[in-house]
Write a protein that binds this DNA or RNA. Structure first.
Lengths: 369, 369
DNA sequence: CTGAAAGCGCTAACAC
DNA sequence: GTGTTAGCGCTTTCAG
C-alpha cells in the first residue's frame, strides 16, 4: 500500500497522482493480477462468471483505468497513429485531421498529431518522438520532396503512408516500403485549366507558394500541359510562386493568394483567369482581385483545388477541383492499420485517385474585351 | 541478444520491429545502462567526457531512440497534453489546436487530440483513454454545461483547464480543482449588439446553434442585456437556435448559419442585422442573405464572434468580436503545465479576458427604409 | 565516477 | 479456472 504515496519529487517534481493498479483490483476482488488481466483482454472464457463479476465490481469501485503505457511496454506498440501535417490551422488540414481521426477511431486507434510546417527537420523530430512513444504507424500529409529524413525510422520498422506524394522513386532508391496515396494532381490541374480555356481565357495565371512539394509541381505540369495542348505557350510571368523565404503560407494561404493575385493582376498584361494551387489561395485571390477593383467572376475567373467546405460558402461559390478526402483517408488508414497488424504485406502500394472538377460561380466566359 | 527476435505473434500479431535498447548502447559503449540513462537525462557531470562521447557515438551508430513508454512507466506521466475539442475541421478549433500545440511545444509537451463533438460521453471516453496513456493534463475546449463526466478523473489527479467555460459553480459543488479561462462572452455580445444599435438597427437577430454551452448562453445574455439597455424588448422570434437534434453544427457551422439567416430573413418582419454566435455562422449568414436576394451589408448587417482569420478575407470583411486566442492559449498551457510540474498550486484560477470589437465591412447604418 | 539491482504496471507462459 | 513468475526498457537508489 505504501506504493500509494506521492510520487513526484526532486527538482521539477511531477505532481502526485494516486494510481490504481491491476494489483489493487486483484486484491479487492480476492483474485490474482493475471485473472484481472484476462478480463481486461476479454479472455472471459478462462474464469467463472462470478469471478469476472467480482473483478468488474472492483474495477468500478476503484475507478480503475488500465495503464496503457505498461500494457504497451509489453506488446511493443500503442494503438496510436501519428499524423504529421503542415498546419491544422489550415482548414484543409483541419478537415484532413478530422477524417483521419474518424477513420482511426473506427479501427480502435487514436491520433497524435504534429504540425511540422513542411520542415523536414521538424518532421523528423516528430517521427522520432512518435516512435519513442511506441507509435509504429504514421501518416505524412503533403511531405517535402525528399523522404530521406524518415528512411532511418522506416528501416527500423516504422510504417508510413504519404498523402499527396507518390513515393515510387524514393522506394527504388533506398529499397524501403512506403505506401502512398494521392490524387492525380496533373489531371486535376489539367481539368481546371481546360475549363478556363473552354471559357475563352487565354491568359491564365498560376497562383502558388514555393514549388517544393511533389503535388505542387505536378499541378504546375498539368497546367502547362493543358496550355500547350491548346497551342498556348505557358508564360513564366504568369506563374506566381511567392517568396521562397516566407515559407509555404499554410496558415496564411489566403494572405498569400491575395498577394499573388494582386501581383498577377497588376501586370501590364494581366491574366483574365487564375488557377490557384488550393482553395485557400483561391479565396485569398478573391480579396486580391477586390484590392485591384476587379470582381470575380466578371473581371477575373478563379479556380481552386481541394474543394474544402468553404468553397461552397464562399462569395461567389468557388469552382474547384475536388479531391475525395474522406474516402482517400479511409483508404489510407486502412492500409496503414493493416500493415501494422500484419494483415497486409508485400510491396508498397501507390494509390492514385481521380479528381473531379466542380463548376460553381467563380468562373465565367471571358469578356468580349 | 535473442531479445532481438521478432515480437509479434498470435492472432492479430503486431508486426516485428527491432528495437534498440539502452542496454545495447551500454554494451557497445562498454559501460552500464545507468550511465547511458544518465546521459539521456543530462546528468553529464556524473561521468568523464570521454565516457559520454563513447556513449553518444554508440547511440548514433545504433540509431537509438529512447523508449518513452518505458521511461514514463517509471515517472508515471508523459509529456503530452490532451486536447478535447468539438471538431478540428472547424477553422476556429483548428487554429485553437495549432495555438495549443505551439505553446505546448515551447514547454516540451506534445498534443494528443480528440474530436468529441461536444458529446459528454465521448469526452469522458477520451479523458479516460488519455489518462491511460499517462496524460495527466488536458484542455477542454468549449465543454458542455456540466463537467460531471470528468470529475472522477480530476479527483484521481487529472489536471484540467476548460476554455470558454467558467467552472466556478462546478467547483463549489464538488470541490474539485478545475482552472478555467474564457473571454467575457456577455461583454463581447454586448459590444456587438451595441455596435448594431448605434448603427440604427432595431430588429437584430441572434443566430446560434443549440444553446447548450455556457459561452453561448452568456452571449445570448449579453445580447439581451444590450437590447434592454436600449429600451428594446428582446423578441424570442429573432433568436434562432437550430434544431437541437441536429448537433452543434461545428463542422457545418457555416451551413447552419446559412439556414438560420434564411429563416430569420424570411420572417414577416425580418431583422435588419444579425449577430452570429461565431464567425463560421456569420459567414454562413452571408450565403443565407444571398439566398434571400439580400446583400451584406447593404440590406443586412452581420456581426460575428471569434475573429478567425477568414473574417478578414471574407467578402465583405466581417465585423466581429475578437478573442485573443493565441494569448489565451499560451496562458492556458502555462497554467496547466505549471500545475503538472508542481510549480503552481492553490485554488482553481478563473481567468476572464476582455474581447474587442473589430469593425470591418459587414455592418452598415440601417437604411432609411 | 560507474555499475548492480530493484522495481514502474502489465502480459503471457506455465504451474497448480 | 486461477495463481506465480519472469520480464518489457528505463530510472533510480545505493554500493563500489
Amino acid at each position: 500500500m505504501d506504493r500509494r504515496r506521492v510520487r513526484g519529487r526532486g527538482s521539477g517534481a511531477l505532481m502526485a497522482s494516486k494510481v490504481v493498479t491491476i494489483e489493487d483490483v486483484a486484491l479487492l476482488a480476492k483474485t490474482s493480477p493475471s485473472t484481472v488481466s484476462n478480463v481486461l483482454n476479454g479472455r472471459l472464457d478462462r474464469m467463472r462468471p462470478e469471478t469476472q463479476e467480482r473483478i468488474q465490481r472492483a474495477m468500478a469501485q476503484l475507478g480503475y483505468t488500465p495503464n496503457q503505457l505498461a500494457r504497451q511496454l509489453k506488446t511493443g506498440q500503442v494503438p496510436i497513429l501519428g499524423l504529421v501535417i503542415p498546419s491544422v490551422a489550415n482548414p484543409f488540414w483541419g478537415a484532413f485531421a478530422q477524417c483521419v481521426e474518424e477513420a482511426a477511431r473506427g479501427r480502435g486507434y487514436q491520433v497524435l498529431f504534429g504540425n511540422a510546417g513542411r520542415d523536414p527537420a521538424q518532421e523528423e523530430r516528430y517521427a522520432e518522438s512518435l516512435w519513442g512513444y511506441g507509435v509504429r504507424g504514421v501518416i505524412f500529409g503533403s511531405s517535402p520532396l525528399s523522404l530521406d529524413h524518415v528512411q532511418g525510422l522506416v528501416r527500423r520498422g516504422l510504417r508510413a503512408v504519404t498523402f499527396d506524394r507518390d513515393t515510387r522513386g524514393a522506394d527504388r532508391g533506398v529499397g524501403v516500403e512506403i505506401d502512398s496515396i494521392s490524387v492525380d494532381n496533373a489531371l486535376g490541374a489539367r481539368l481546371a485549366t481546360e475549363h478556363l480555356l473552354a471559357l475563352g481565357h487565354r491568359r491564365i495565371g498560376f497562383l502558388s507558394g514555393p514549388l517544393r512539394t511533389a503535388s505542387r509541381l505536378q499541378r504546375l505540369e498539368g497546367y502547362r500541359g493543358a496550355l500547350r495542348a491548346a497551342g498556348l505557350d505557358p508564360h513564366p510571368a504568369l506563374v506566381w510562386e511567392g517568396l521562397p523565404s516566407e515559407g509555404f503560407g499554410d496558415v496564411e494561404g489566403a494572405e498569400f493568394g491575395r498577394r499573388g493575385a494582386r501581383d498577377l493582376l497588376g501586370l501590364a498584361e494581366p491574366p483574365t483567369a487564375l488557377f490557384a494551387i488550393n482553395d485557400m489561395y483561391a479565396l485569398g485571390a478573391y480579396a486580391g482581385a477586390r484590392d485591384r477593383g476587379l470582381a470575380v467572376p466578371d473581371d477575373v475567373s478563379v479556380v481552386g483545388f481541394d474543394d474544402i467546405f468553404l468553397a461552397e460558402v464562399a462569395q461567389p461559390a468557388l469552382t474547384t477541383v475536388r479531391q475525395p478526402l474522406r474516402e482517400m483517408l479511409r483508404t489510407t488508414v486502412t492500409m496503414l492499420v493493416d500493415r501494422l497488424e500484419g494483415s497486409r504485406d508485400g510491396p508498397a502500394d501507390h494509390t492514385v485517385v481521380t479528381p473531379e472538377l466542380i463548376v460553381r460561380a467563380s468562373t465565367a466566359a471571358r469578356e468580349a474585351a
